[in-house]
């Protein structure tokens, strides 16, 4: 494998790692955080929740209209709630990233798109995206040199 190709692939891997790998520049937090969510067709309120890595998170779900559910990607946690009732689940936010909260009970036409977000990332997500996009662009540019070498050969 040529040097530019190897460098390009390495940069691609780094770009991907910057986007999705655990972020090393944070110290795990401790403590408990109660997150109160209200489900209604077809949204969670609040739609985005941010917690610190390492926090114990207590999810409290209520419904404002029909039966709803909440499935948390990555943590495999599920709640179901009838209107006027309350459901709870707790977990340690040990995985860093953005995790979608999805309604798990068919609740109407836009049910598959009833999505909220739980962000577990003390460091700015913008930094990851900026780094990922920059590294991907750089990988493309370095890859060009591989083309040049192939052409010269």
């Amino acid at each position: 494998m040529s040097l530019p190709r190897a460098a390009s692939l390495t940069l691609l891997a780094l770009a991907l790692a910057a986007l999705v790998a655990p972020w090393p520049f944070t110290s795990p937090a401790v403590g408990e955080r109660v997150v109160r969510l209200t489900a209604r067709q077809f949204a969670f309120d609040p739609p985005q929740v941010e917690v610190a890595q390492g926090e114990r998170v207590v999810l409290e779900l209520t419904s404002a209209d029909v039966v709803h559910g909440l499935y948390l990607d990555g943590y495999d946690i599920e709640l179901k709630v009838d209107p006027g009732q309350r459901a709870r689940a707790s977990f340690i936010a040990d995985q860093v990233g953005t995790f979608r909260m999805r309604c798990s009970v068919t609740c109407g036409p836009l049910h598959p798109f009833m999505i909220g977000e739980l962000k577990v990332r003390p460091a700015g997500g913008g930094a990851r995206i900026l780094l990922g996009a920059s590294l991907a662009t750089l990988a493309g540019l370095v890859g060009l040199r591989d083309d040049d070498e192939a052409l010269r050969d």
Binding site: L12, L16, V20, G74, A133, L135, G140, G143
Partner: peptide, 21 residues
């Protein structure tokens, strides 16, 4: 659900790198 974001990230990173090239 743990793997999909990585696959999505790979598609986006590869797409951007390829577009640049």
């Amino acid at each position: 659900t743990g793997l999909v974001p990585a696959l999505q990230g790979a598609a986006l990173v590869a797409g951007l790198a390829w577009a640049t090239r």
